[in-house]
Amino acid sequence: MIRFENITKALGGKTVLDRISFEVSEGETLVIVGLSGAGKSVTLKHMIRLMQPDSGVVMIDGESINDLGRSALQVTRTKFGMLFQSAALLQWMSVKDNVALPLREHMKISEEEIEKRVASKLNLLNLSDAGDKFPANLSGGMQKRVGLARAIIMNPKIVLYDEPTSGLDPVTSRRIDDLIVDMRKELGITSVVVTHDLHSALFIGTRIMMLHEGRIVENAPPEEFIRSKNETVQSFLESQYITKKGKWETGLSHE
């Protein structure tokens, strides 16, 4: 569904991605982990051509998006929903209007229908009371959830999450994790999730990929990932008190 072939990207004179290749198949949840500055957000941005690779090809549904024209690119982008690391809500619009924006822009449906769809997504993310507030008056965690509501309002096939649970309390974080798992199991949504939280990575991911110094150092299902021989992966695991011996519930294990 998403395939990177030898993607190289330099930014600010530094090679951020160095000949990266990987694939995400339909219905998978790929979790990308790595230290700050490892290029996780840059990788996500390549998937919808917010950034263009210096070399290499990004394939979506078997088609290179490198040279798509504007309208073809728009069609490809309708397959995606994206939650940005900074939530990226429009400041002058209320929560409701932010979430309704893609519907208003692209769908010829009645205002009642829009209200209904928006309300159901806000409800799903526990935001029912925040509809009339403005982004500036929301906590960071609430902004994230509004961003998520907006990302999934058009029911995309693929959802990209850039740190969906950073800045959220543990209870809400688990709720978001559950939502990501539910979307995969019930709707067959393909997801790519960037996170620093290994506990949630192990829970939601069908595969975990670690980026380090421009390369992929590990790309494996959760059970294998925690047993990785790679030193970078091991020290990353240890930093979050995850050991090979520990028994971790994963998204796959309770299927």
């Binding site: 982008r77 994206m82 990226a88």
Partner: peptide, 17 residues
Amino acid sequence: GTMTVSEEIAALEVMSI
């Protein structure tokens, strides 16, 4: 400018706006 640095412009592009 603020919208650009806080990724709001990128978000518009992803939404094909």
